[in-house]
Simulated assay, not measured.
Amino acid sequence: MRILESSLCSAFALALALAAHAEPSNYEIHARLDQGPGNVTVTGTGRVIFSQHPFYGPADSVVELKGGGGPTPFPNAALNDRGGPSALKLDSVLGLRAAADGVVWMLDNGMRGGMTPKLVGWDTVSDRLQRVIYLGSEAAPKDQFVNDFAVDLAHKRIFISDPAGGADAGIIVVDLETGAARRVLQGHPSVLPENVDLVIDGRPVEMKDAQGNRVRPHIGVNPITEDVRNEWVYFGPMHGHGLYRVKAADLADDQLPPAALAQRVERYADKPISDGISIDRDGNIYLGELAENAIGVITPDRKYKRLAQCPNLSWVDSLSFGPDGKLYAVVNRLHQSAVLNAGENASKPPYFLLKVDALAPGLAGR
């Protein structure tokens, strides 16, 4: 079956490459999963950890893929036990990142259990809880959907993307020393969704509103990453054709007036509708091209090109580098979930964890 899949996708990619005068793609299916994944991160020691997407109602919010076996709860079963009384329990984790100091940060939006959104840091070196940071209502409004983030140990900050309700999309800056969180760039064009629909395989992505009407969601800032030198933070709306950037030092500066910060944001490049992103040591920015079942890259000349295209690449949600230089990515077919398919669940396993040949190595966990 694996040989057949590879052959079919290679033929598909080759036909597309010949049509576009491009190189054929190169990726492999690293693992087949029974539960739809959310985001993935890989530690400096090679531990592969990923969230299980809340849209699929998983028993365990975060799991680790261990050699030879299936996913096991990360960091343990107790922290994933949503039936417990503790506010520390993991409820609805999407974004997670392994930092260079060995701490895996997990971003829990708390939406399934109606819990306060929080960041949970687990020290994989000492195997213990490192810290919990709660995001108050001033930083994360009622319609928050805190999703992805970048960890910046140089500036002692975490930068979180929050598409919220659309018009109130913004970025949350968390101070790792004090735990204070503040919301910036709310309503700025760089975080707002554009009026563009996502259409996959000829079918528009639709949700049902409270009255049961079909609506086409337009989601604000979602993809976010930071270069390996901790100089620039790159971000943009999911439903949008622009990728933006701002200096990490400016984003971290809580004394910089909002108007001044807004003026320092620049439009970096064109991009397709996309979910997660990652970046390598040479400044190549990788993303999933959702509408085309593809993975693409924005090169340092600010041009976008497609790296891989195949029916297997059906909603590439998140990307992260491992210490082996490979780019890991998850495929979860989220547009076929009941939430994004007007109430009808058409999504079936297996889902995929991929390893992609990148143009250059990246920083593990980023």
Rank of each mutant, 00 (worst) to 15 (best):
G95I: 01
V125H: 11
G179A: 06
N341Y: 01
F74W: 00
Y351I: 02
R131N: 10
Y304Q: 01
P37E: 07
F145Q: 14
Y244T: 08
L319M: 11
A19N: 14
A99C: 09
I219T: 11
P141N: 03
A13S: 15
V63M: 05
P223Q: 05
N293P: 06
T225H: 01
G68F: 06
L327C: 08
V246W: 02
L14A: 13
R216F: 13
A181G: 08
V215R: 03
V40K: 00
G220K: 02
P58I: 00
D34A: 15
Q144P: 00
Y268M: 01
I277P: 08
L90T: 04
Y56D: 12
R47G: 08
P163H: 04
V40Y: 02
Q255E: 14
R306F: 13
Q336T: 13
D201P: 06
P349Q: 04
D201E: 12
G212V: 09
G46I: 09
P189F: 04
M115H: 12
P117D: 01
K89Y: 06
A20E: 15
E138A: 13
E206P: 05
A360I: 00
D152M: 11
W122D: 04
P350F: 06
Q35T: 14
D91P: 02
V331M: 05
G114K: 03
V103T: 04
D168P: 09
P350I: 00
D34L: 14
Q144D: 00
R97Q: 11
D152Q: 06
D148V: 04
P349L: 03
L307A: 00
T41F: 03
A78S: 11
Y27H: 08
K326Y: 13
P311V: 08
N109E: 04
L261C: 06
T41P: 02
D60R: 02
N80I: 00
A15V: 14
P349N: 08
K355S: 10
V233I: 13
F321I: 07
